[in-house]
Design a protein around this nucleic acid. Structure first.
Length: 484
RNA sequence: GGCGCAUUCGUCUAGGGGUUUAGGACACCUCCCUCUCAAGGAGGAGAUCACCGGUUCGAAUCCGGUAUGCGCUACCA
């Protein structure tokens, strides 16, 4: 690669950042970091009608969360700004005027109604829909008349009627399109804003973008862009179209598939490390076996050659597994710090606030290897924080146990525990194991009964450690309640 | 309808003419460990490489067609 790598992530603030968009940003970022190039963030806010307030902030926030730092763009500036397309209108106007002047574009005065009717008619007659070039050859007089009527025109590109446009995509190879299948697309809307096609080409040129990385859905608009680059006298960049991310039903991932905004994953307690690793593996792979890759390993090994060509379905199970792997790899302290906000938010209101950090620190090691998301932590540890346990009393009677033996286990257990001096893991084990033998129970039976009494559930962290953290008083009280 | 692209276990994928009885991961099942749940360990099941034809001594790998899926076909990006 001779030119410096300059890649851009160009989201449009018409909604919250989708995992698909973020995956594009990740590929951009990885390529830039791999080659020591620049990662540029450009906001494509040219659709005034669909603009969503606050979307830009959420996008920046998401990128920061994932650690995808940008070298140029909002908040950091750069030599190729401004980085909001709404602030570059003059550039697009100039370009479109130049195209009109040199005969590569023209003003179109057709009303939305006429276009709609035209399209409906084409569909009815099973013809390919597309602009019929009504205004392509308007005479000066006709134009003047339309202007006089006060119609605000759009600028359309004068697509060659014949011939072919070909290009090479880094992922897909050589592609050729017949110009006859392209219509005279709009460059500048009547409100003075550019369409994606114009803005993209102009900006990618002036920002000296080396690789245009985006999803496969853009593949068929490349010929239009190539034609534009040519007409404008610009050198086209390299095109890199990656496969899309699909929902379980194989349709383009959308709201009805559940979480699609990257922000939702943060809220559900997925770690940024997980998301980066997981998303990188959707459409890219290192080899035939490596699944867990750190950020640095990803940077070191990322290459366009290994980007696949087939769309990938978002596999939630695998994401959960991977998040568990990353959660377990955290230091206890790190895990505790990250889980704390989720605990605070997720625990019922009866849990005393502020939460005792000391107490939380004792609990976290017990559930770290059991949690798959940070959000789960609240549910997994709830019994540590509430006074009243709510459970079905029959659970106290373990497998192959009678009601009487369970009651006796609790009574004797309570008595012995009361006498226990040091209420720690070793002492508890030293006391309870022999007790099971004494009561004629299997350890599993005794421990099971105690577990339910003390935690209200049949699945919980190891008993002795759990009891140690709960403390003598609380354990005795809970056994008392269980006996009622 | 037109144009374009894709198609390897349920899912993510490796593999790009002979090294493949098609490898790994998630999920699933069994066993081990074990006070439950996890985690961990050992196994298992799961893919006629979409289909049909061709090229070749030999094809998951190359070529053609068919099917299916997806994308584009806006004064949206």
């Amino acid at each position: 690669m001779t030119n410096p790598v300059r890649v851009r992530f160009a989201p449009s603030p018409t909604g919250y950042p989708h995992v698909g968009n973020i995956r594009t940003a990740l590929f951009d970022w990885l390529l830039a970091r791999h080659y020591g190039g620049s990662f540029i963030l450009r906001i494509e806010d040219t659709d005034v009608a669909r603009r969503v307030k606050g979307a830009v902030e959420v996008i920046l926030d998401a990128l920061r969360w994932l650690g995808l730092d940008w070298d140029e763009g909002p908040e950091v500036g750069g030599n190729y700004g401004p980085y909001f397309q709404s602030q570059r209108l003059e550039l697009y106007r100039e370009a479109s005027q130049r195209l009109v002047a040199q005969g590569d574009a023209y003003y179109c005065y057709c009303s939305p109604q006429r276009l709609e009717e035209m399209r409906a008619e084409q569909v009815r007659r099973k013809q390919p829909p597309g602009y019929d070039r009504y205004c392509r050859n308007l005479s000066e007089k006709e134009r003047a008349q339309k202007e006089a009527e006060g119609i605000k025109p759009v600028v359309r590109f004068k697509t060659p009627l014949e011939g072919q446009t070909g290009f090479n995509d880094v992922i897909w190879g050589d592609l050729v399109f017949d110009n006859s299948t392209l219509d005279d697309f709009v460059l500048l809307k009547s409100d003075g804003y550019p369409t994606y096609h114009l803005a993209n080409v102009v900006d990618d040129h002036f920002m000296e973008i080396s690789h245009v990385i985006r999803a496969e859905e853009w593949l068929s608009s490349v010929p239009r862009h190539i034609l534009l680059y040519k007409a404008l006298g610009f050198e086209p960049p390299l095109f890199v179209h990656h496969p899309m991310i699909l929902g379980p039903d194989r349709a383009k991932l959308s709201k009805r598939h559940g979480a699609t905004s990257i922000i939702e994953y943060r809220e559900q307690g997925y770690l940024p490390e997980t998301m980066v690793n997981f998303l990188a593996l959707l459409g890219w792979s290192l080899d035939d076996k490596t699944e867990i890759l750190s950020r640095q390993e990803l940077i070191d090994n990322f290459s366009l050659e290994r980007v696949s060509r087939t769309a990938a379905i978002f596999n939630w199970d695998k994401l959960n597994w991977m998040n568990g792997v990353y959660i377990r790899s955290l230091s206890v302290e790190d895990f505790t710090q990250r889980a704390f906000p989720f605990l605070d938010r997720g625990l019922p209101s009866e849990a005393k606030r502020p939460l005792s950090m000391d107490y939380v620190r004792q609990i976290m090691p017990l559930i770290q290897e059991r949690a798959r998301t940070l959000a789960e932590v609240a549910e997994l540890t709830q019994f540590f924080f509430v006074d009243k346990l709510d459970y079905d009393a029959t659970l106290l009677i373990g497998k192959n146990m009678s009601r009487e033996s369970a009651v006796r286990a609790l009574q004797v257990g309570q008595e012995r525990l009361r006498q226990l001096e040091s209420f720690d893991t070793e002492s508890l084990e030293a006391l309870l194991r022999p007790l099971a033998v004494e009561l004629g129970l299997k350890t599993g039976q005794l421990f099971g009964t105690l577990r339910v009494a003390v935690t209200g559930r049949t699945a919980a962290p190891p008993l002795f450690q759990t009891m140690t953290v709960l403390g003598k008083e609380r354990c005795l009280k809970r056994i008392e309640v269980a006996l009622d």
